[in-house]
Design a protein around this nucleic acid. Sequence first.
RNA 1: GUCCCCGUAUCCCAACGGCAGAGGAAAUGCUCUCAAACAGCAUCGAGUGUGGGUUCGAAUCCCACCGGGGACACCA
Length: 931
Amino acid sequence: MSDATDTPPFRYTAALADEIELRWQDFWDSRGTFHAPNPVGELADAAHPRAGAPKLHVQDMFPYPSGAGLHVGHPLGYIGTDSYTRYKRMAGYNVLHPMGFDAFGLPAEQYAVQTGTHPRVTTEANVERYRKQLRRLGLAYDNRRTVATTDPEYYRWTQWIFLQVYNSWYDDSVQRARPIAELIASYEAGERGEEWATLSDVERRRVIDGHRLAYVAEAPVNWCPGLGTVLADAEVTPDGRSERGNYPVFQRRMKQWLMRITAYGDRLVDDLDVMDWPEPVKLMQRNWIGRSSGAHVDFAVDDHTVTVFTTRPDTLFGATYMVLAPEHALVDQVVPAAWPDGTKDVWTGGHATPAEAVAAYRAQAAAKTDEERTADAKVKTGVFTGAYAVNPVNGARIPVFVADYVLAGYGTGAIMAVPGQDERDWAFAEVFDLPIVRTVQAPDGYDGAYTGDGPAINSDWLDGLHVAEAKAAMIERLEAEGTGKGATTWRLRDWLFSRQRYWGEPFPIVYDETGLPVALPESMLPVELPEVDDFSPRTFDPDDAASEPETPLSRAKEWVEVELDLGDGPKRYTRETNTMPQWAGSCWYELRYLDPHNDKVLVDPANEAYWMGPQSPGDCGGVDLYVGGVEHAVLHLLYARFWHKVLYDLGHVSSFEPFRKLFNQGYIQAYAYRDARGMIVPAYDVVERDGKFYLGDQEVFREYGKMGKTLQNVVTPDEMCEAYGADTFRVYEMAMGPLDVSRPWDTRAVVGSQRFLQRVWRLVVDEETGAVRVGADPADDKTRRLLHRVIDGVRADMEELRFNTAIAKLIELTNALTGLPAAPREAVEPLVLMMSPFAPHIAEELWAKLGHDDTLAYADWPVADPALLVADTVTYPVQVNGKVRGRVEVAADAGEDDVRAAALAAVAESLAGRDPRKVIVVQGRLVSVVV
RNA sequence: GUCCCCGUAUCCCAACGGCAGAGGAAAUGCUCUCAAACAGCAUCGAGUGUGGGUUCGAAUCCCACCGGGGACACCA
């Protein structure tokens, strides 16, 4: 062990980095360096250097603190926002950059079920570990503002928001939520019909409860026996399994809490237009919400009326048959005793009567899972019901089919089929030999269903109109005749909000003797989770669709049965024993950061307006930059937008969107290795030789995937800090590529970032003596010009989050300074300031060594001198027919004619007497000569 | 099947339509060392997935195809 003697005593090594980093972390903590002042309240501080400055609110999607701790992929976004906010703070902004923990959730609960350890114990330990890991990275959070969703002081307000939602209704006439008291007043004033006066108290409550934005309903839900809980649509994978645990999920009707997010469908779609979000995420939200506008059209089927939904009312003259979903309620009622005349053989499925055919088909459809239905989508199946419908616009009789390509849960569960303009209908019509009538003129030679625009044909009075006008004209006619109505349908359903779980927020709801819910008053919040011995919901055989949920809280009898005085004297009540889903706490945390300890209100309006309020007329307001993975594109981001809009409608916040700008960071993935038997081997022990990979002598094979236990390729920030220090780790993560691009982790390459920091260190500190060696002389002209070019470029890169190119420029400058006998202070100081967002500890240390006695966190960010950005002379390459044939150096301010003359002289030889046909001078760039 | 993103040196990545290289890694040589590691200095390198088109000029814009990643997938 002679390392210590051979390494220069003052070299920037991992050990020195460790010492510097821990010291500065303590310094920042003890000084409260990164505290951000609020306008009002406990966190206001008029003496703060950034009090009253322009604000910037930057936030990361907060983590679920898992038992495995962080790996190097997790902090990528955190380091990105930290670098950005450190830069913006130096550039003069009052920066809010908080961090918290999404601490309710299944893993801690499942661990509790297995081991009997209370989820709170596990969660707190995990949170503590995360805090330590994040602190070690030197992330400049305002730690006074941290939140954990499991903290009763936090979930008190989650419950409070639930009460706001519960105690309001959506007034369609003004397109916003209003207090439920206003609805009750309206009923009592007789503005909503006479009936109210005749109702009993209980009936009145039922009427009102039916309008609330949070309500209990018997609804089709996703019941997952394997987890013992119901799930939101978004938590179910397309193949009908639970996203967590991958258990089968069954459709069941159950009594559950729902939130009326569908009321906000229009605004959730429309407001996407004003937000600065990645287009793919906006698209995913639009798809998920699935707004489509068209019309409901009534078709007579014998004595019954079947209403269909269509987005193409303009094609009504081309409707040649009708389809009901197998589950449609009217199917049985329209089926006649025998096949009518004209029934084609392919329509019957080989059955003797319509009733048999329909029953057989329905049984067959019911037996299919959604997955099978989708997999079979290529081949259209169905059967004739024997009934005919009458097309309301032309009186045509069209056969009514049952087919599973029509979904019961969307629209009305019935369609008019227009094969000429719909690909699915076309495919069905071909199988069942049904007529095809084009009602939109297709291009010459077009085969198949034509869904594009064109003039209407075969459509009587619509002929000649284009699609958009034809739709409007048809809707107008249908409404006038009373056979239809313009309509909008949604794919989005109301949000299933209850879970049969222990480790979640209890509802602030009790039930009285009527069995109807009663909201607890704010004064009784928080409703804390009771202590229980058994955390597990009753789980079942994962395939037992008929099982019934039983919540863990229902077993805490002394908690469930309570005596309360809710205004009419002490009475017995029963508590709600479901808990809220994990999304609840993350639906509003961006607001609590603003005023984390306020026990009077969720957030003081002045603080909300400052940090998140609209910045200009029409601006939606919200967090200025929200960074996280794209996997939350619909779930979290849709739910949070919904809650925020409710709070906006009720006047609690001034912004109508929570996140003005969204940025999706990429992922750090890693190589994994399998041996010849296909077994994963620890990536850490694999070595590369001659392009092949070996574990010992055995060749192994490389693949690429997520970092994790199963692939045995986890690298932790702790290891990186130990081997190189946090600054090196941070610089490496920011330098390896653009923030939004996924890339492979390569531990071998980290050393490059360490060498960069070592070189900067050496510019300031003599490795042998530890003395400050920075030069006092002014920089030479060349160095000075480079410095200002770098200052200029780095600022632009920082603004655009292009950290990789910013770091490249800093390295370029460093390498230039390294070559000088003594690096001039004039260049070193800006370099230290500019590297500080990425490597804050070493930058602080060097800043101090350069003679500054306070943190550089509030030092002025360097500004480039424009005069030094323009060169004295410019070298123009001269192209002849696209090939570079010469170069000329001319004064930077030379006119175009001078440049042309010089250029032509320079390539006279190549021209060989030919006359240039054209000479193009690109100012400052090049000259192109065409002969 | 439809839509979106991406293909630049051995690898990760740069290049307002204007000389393909900012930066890092690897590799090679040298310095330091008894030796090695660290560190330092130097060297090495592709014509931009393929084929067309637009242009004086294309990695960049357009079209088609190939490869990789992602989203959606009977939503009437």
